[in-house]
């Protein structure tokens, strides 16, 4: 079991080369190797979405993704969302704050990443999503505090 594999990928815009064990999960690469603790470990079996990150712009569960398979790809975590020099955070994060859509906050980084990928897809397809389409888009993210209503309202406000 001494096999290790070299991967080249981009994390939050930064090109990175690492040698990792083949069985390493993407969530462990992000949290333990790179020290980016914004990505949360929840159920660790793909149910809760707390660990959601973007791989090539698409939301995936980092707990069910082999780290070696990000070779050649672009990974974005919640830490990689842009902050302007004036301190303005990403519009998705701002909308969640403005709508009171964050309570304990544990699900929020994953929720933000799912919403990011959904908003990008809607903008690309020139679609204004309905509340049902928004609910469908966040079906893979559990939130035990808010009851989702404020989250859905926050997403609606982005269009």
């Amino acid at each position: 079991m001494s096999q290790s594999i070299k991967i080249n990928f981009t994390i939050n815009g930064k090109r990175t080369e690492l040698t990792i064990p083949p069985y390493m999960l993407l969530i462990d690469l992000i949290r333990e190797e790179l020290g980016l603790k914004g990505t949360k470990p929840g159920c660790l079996e793909g149910e809760c979405g707390a660990c959601t990150v973007l791989v090539n712009g698409e939301a995936v569960n980092s707990c069910l993704y082999l780290a070696i398979n990000v070779d050649g790809k672009e990974v974005i975590t919640v830490e990689g969302l842009p902050v302007t020099p004036e301190g303005e955070i990403d519009p998705v994060q701002e909308a969640l704050i403005q709508h009171g859509a964050v309570q304990c906050g544990f699900c929020t980084p994953g929720m933000v990443m799912s919403i990011k990928s959904f908003v990008a897809q809607c903008n690309k397809d020139n679609i204004i999503p309905s509340p049902d389409e928004i609910k469908k888009a966040i079906e893979g993210n559990l939130c035990r505090c808010t009851g989702y209503v404020k989250i859905v309202e926050a997403v609606e406000s982005l269009f």
Partner: peptide, 9 residues
């Protein structure tokens, strides 16, 4: 099937 994150892969 499952969720968007799962369907993606």
């Amino acid at each position: 099937l499952a969720s968007g994150q799962v369907r993606q892969v």
